[in-house]
């Protein structure tokens, strides 16, 4: 019989992959107050930074699930999210050192050092600005289509239905054109 903890994690991951609406928002709301309180005890920082770390934690979880890099957990979803947020905060702030007890997050991080790898920031600042500016420049429909395909990992079949295309081929051709346009803008911006 499957462990109820991992079963819940598995159900959450499957629901996200299936595009079930509201799942991410529910996770965000459900554990947010607890994270802010928990992390607030460990780091000397502002509520805004704690909030930012929580958003990053949820985003990292979402991206890893959608890209297929996270298909199962050996801890609760809550512990995973807290661990990501914790690592995020560690990057920029000093931790309050002394704790009389260890909780599930400490144990999860200790037992699985590879549990979460933050890869949000490995890019030059000017490169980030350039890429975002290029995205700003493409048409809203292209942007939406590219986001659905390459960020939300939506299938061609689903894109065909959602954007009312006549065939798979039309979706693929439009996607290729949108991507080519984005590349052209990036190339132009890189050379100025």
């Amino acid at each position: 019989m499957q462990n109820p903890v991992t079963k819940f994690a598995q159900e959450t991951i499957s629901a996200l992959r299936d595009g079930q609406p509201g799942i991410l928002e529910d996770l965000y709301d459900q554990f947010r107050p607890a994270f802010l309180a928990w992390a607030g005890k460990r780091f000397r920082t502002t509520p805004g930074d704690l909030e930012d770390a929580w958003q990053d934690a949820v985003v990292v979880f979402y991206e890893k699930v959608m890209s297929g890099r996270l298909t199962a957990l050996n801890c609760t979803v809550r512990t995973y999210l807290f661990a990501v947020g914790y690592k995020r905060l560690l990057k920029n702030y000093r931790k309050i050192n002394r704790f009389l007890w260890q909780d599930a997050v400490d144990k999860a991080l200790k037992n699985n050092p590879e549990l979460v790898l933050i890869d949000l920031d490995d890019i030059w600042e000017e490169e980030r600005d350039l890429l975002l500016a290029a995205m700003e420049q493409i048409s809203p429909r292209c942007r939406d289509l590219l986001l659905k395909r390459y960020y939300e990992e939506t299938s061609i079949e689903e894109l065909m239905q959602r954007f009312e295309y006549a065939s798979h081929n039309s979706v693929s051709v439009t996607l290729a054109n949108c991507l080519a346009n984005l590349k052209k803008i990036i190339q132009e911006k890189s050379s100025t």
Partner: peptide
């Protein structure tokens, strides 16, 4: 890779 990176950056900012 850059183009995909741009899409992901945008998607992430949008989601946040």
């Amino acid at each position: 890779e850059k183009a995909i990176g741009a899409i992901r950056l945008w998607g992430r900012a949008d989601l946040k």
